[in-house]
Simulated assay, not measured.
Amino acid sequence: MRVTTKDELNRLSEAVIGAAIAVHRELGPGLLESAYEACLEFELLSRGMTVERQKALPVVYRGMKVDCGFRIDLLVNDALLVEVKAIERFERVHEAQVQTYLRLMGLNLGLLMNFNVTRLVDGVKRVVRDFPD
């Protein structure tokens, strides 16, 4: 079921952040992105959410779908994009990537999560494209 209101998206993002904090408390920093991604998928599924992992994201160019190899890390409840990182720090390109993915998917909210931090709350960035009324 696709989340459509601002309040629903906010509640969903809070729940996903809570699940990511649980994963980070268990694993800590220092692992590969793929490990955090897999464990976060497991945690979200165990909390009753629907999750698509490594979802293909074609680009539509002149009306044709072109497979460019883009993949989003996690799509939660068909409404929230989650991009998982394990990096030193966020760069502008990471937020631009999420903005582009949101636009291509027709979504409004994404979470950029860096698990390579001491406290996960310091590694979470909300990326908003446009909230519905």
Rank of each mutant, 00 (worst) to 15 (best):
D78H: 07
L32D: 13
L80A: 05
V124C: 12
Q97S: 06
A19K: 02
N108M: 01
L57F: 06
R11Y: 09
M1N: 06
A38K: 08
R126W: 02
V60E: 15
K6E: 09
N114S: 06
Q97P: 04
K125H: 08
I72M: 15
R129Q: 14
K125Y: 04
A19V: 01
E95M: 08
L57M: 12
N10Y: 13
V60F: 04
V76K: 02
I87Y: 10
E83W: 01
F90M: 11
L107Q: 08
S46K: 14
L32S: 10
T50L: 07
R126A: 02
D122M: 02
R2H: 06
I21M: 11
I17R: 11
T118H: 02
A22R: 14
G30D: 07
Q54F: 02
E14N: 14
L107S: 07
D7W: 00
F90Y: 12
E14L: 14
A96E: 10
T50N: 09
A19C: 13
T50P: 00
A19D: 07
G30I: 05
D7F: 00
H24D: 03
I21F: 06
R62F: 13
H94F: 08
L104K: 03
Y36S: 02
R89N: 12
R62P: 02
L80V: 04
Y61G: 04
V16Y: 06
E88G: 04
L104M: 09
V60Y: 07
E8Q: 14
R2I: 11
G123E: 04
L9R: 00
D130A: 13
D130Q: 13
V59D: 12
